[in-house]
Computed example of a mutant assay.
Amino acid sequence: MRPLLPPSVRNLLPLELERRVPLQEPPGLGALVELRLGEGRPVELCFTGASRFLDPSGELTTDAARAWIAGDGLCQRLLQRVAQGSVYALEEELCQGFVTLPGGHRLGLAGQVVASERGHRLAQVTAANLRIARELVGAAELLLDSLQDHGLLPPWPSLLLVGPPGSGKTTLLRDLVRRASEGCPERQVEGMRVGLVDERSEVAACHRGVPRNRVGPRTDVLDRARKAVGLMQLVRTMDPQLVATDEIGSEEDARAVLEAREAGVAVLVTAHAGSLEELAARPGLQPLLAHRAFEAVCVLGRHPRPGTLVALHPRPHIPARSEYL
């Protein structure tokens, strides 16, 4: 049996939570994806196959009435441990609502906000969502098979991976970056120079700029750089054949992707959308479809497991709306 949590994450948990969270993965539920906390409500563990509550003795249960209720200040104490006592040092992250942990894990936060120069920041944390990043070598193979079946590989295509939160976009992106960088000789694809913009340190999990996750021997990483700025910087300075980044969404991001394509560079990016139609409804991203920026849009789902390929749309083209004409 595998450990439920990486040691670096377990060590961050407040004592009253750490002593209740199981040490090993329970059989039949899959890997832990999220640990969700909220003051005055049950602590929930979300696995790839199901979710369970913690009872006061640390056993897993489906009955919320039997569950252990997080006490006042638990989420704030978790944040204090993550910040190593200096929450002020996380000012920028608190404005964004999440903190990236070593290893690419992410602590999402909610609670009471106050106005700040950047819009607002969290003043009191009363809910937290600890998302566990898992490097899954080989995750990209089924998608690569499908691309080859559709005649989209070789050469390496420009791809947009879309799906709802928790559908495995980042995990699949990481493995695709690795495969592009290493090359796929069995698919007649040579290794490529890859530039990765890892704004939240979730893909490469860099420590002092050095990737901890396997992203390939030809991959250059811009860690914690803004996506749009970083993509253009890599195109100008590192001569990539492919650039990649996670969770594009703004018009600025879309312009950077289009500029990379116009420079003859392939792109590999992800975005939140449950279907091609939902993607086209996002004003910031719709121009990418109008300009045929991708050889394929790959729609991912959570069931039966994260990373499931729901649909593959080869060479999608949706004409621009009137506001883009």
Rank of each mutant, 00 (worst) to 15 (best):
L35P: 04
L35H: 08
R36W: 03
R36V: 05
L37R: 03
G38V: 03
E39L: 01
E39H: 07
E39K: 00
G40L: 08
G40N: 01
G40F: 03
G40C: 04
R41C: 05
R41F: 02
P42H: 11
P42C: 08
P42L: 00
P42I: 02
V43T: 14
E44P: 13
E44T: 14
E44V: 15
E44M: 12
L45C: 11
C46V: 08
T48G: 15
G49F: 15
A50S: 11
A50E: 01
S51E: 06
R52P: 00
L54A: 03
P56E: 06
P56G: 02
P56C: 10
S57N: 13
S57C: 11
S57P: 00
G58E: 06
G58C: 06
G58K: 03
E59V: 15
E59T: 15
E59C: 15
E59R: 14
E59S: 15
E59M: 15
L60N: 01
L60G: 06
L60I: 06
T61C: 03
T62G: 14
D63I: 07
A64L: 15
A64G: 14
A65T: 14
A65H: 13
A67C: 13
W68Q: 12
I69L: 04
A70W: 07
A70C: 12
G71C: 07
D72S: 12
G73Q: 08
G73I: 11
G73W: 01
L74K: 03
L74M: 10
C75P: 10
C75V: 08
Q76H: 10
Q76Y: 14
Q76C: 01
Q76T: 11
R77M: 15
L79W: 05
L79N: 02
Q80E: 11
R81E: 08
R81F: 09
V82A: 04
V82S: 03
V82G: 02
Q84H: 06
Q84N: 05
S86H: 11
S86D: 15
V87E: 04
Y88S: 04
Y88D: 03
Y88M: 01
Y88E: 07
Y88W: 10
A89F: 12
E91T: 12
E92P: 13
E93R: 11
E93L: 13
L94H: 09
C95L: 14
Q96P: 09
G97Y: 09
F98R: 00
F98D: 02
F98A: 07
V99D: 08
V99G: 09
T100K: 04
T100F: 05
L101D: 08
L101T: 00
L101W: 06
P102D: 13
G103A: 12
G103L: 09
G103R: 13
G103P: 12
G103T: 04
G104Y: 05
G104E: 02
G104D: 03
H105T: 08
H105K: 01
R106N: 03
R106H: 02
R106A: 07
R106I: 05
L107G: 03
L107A: 10
L107S: 02
L107Y: 12
L107K: 03
G108R: 02
G108F: 00
G108Q: 01
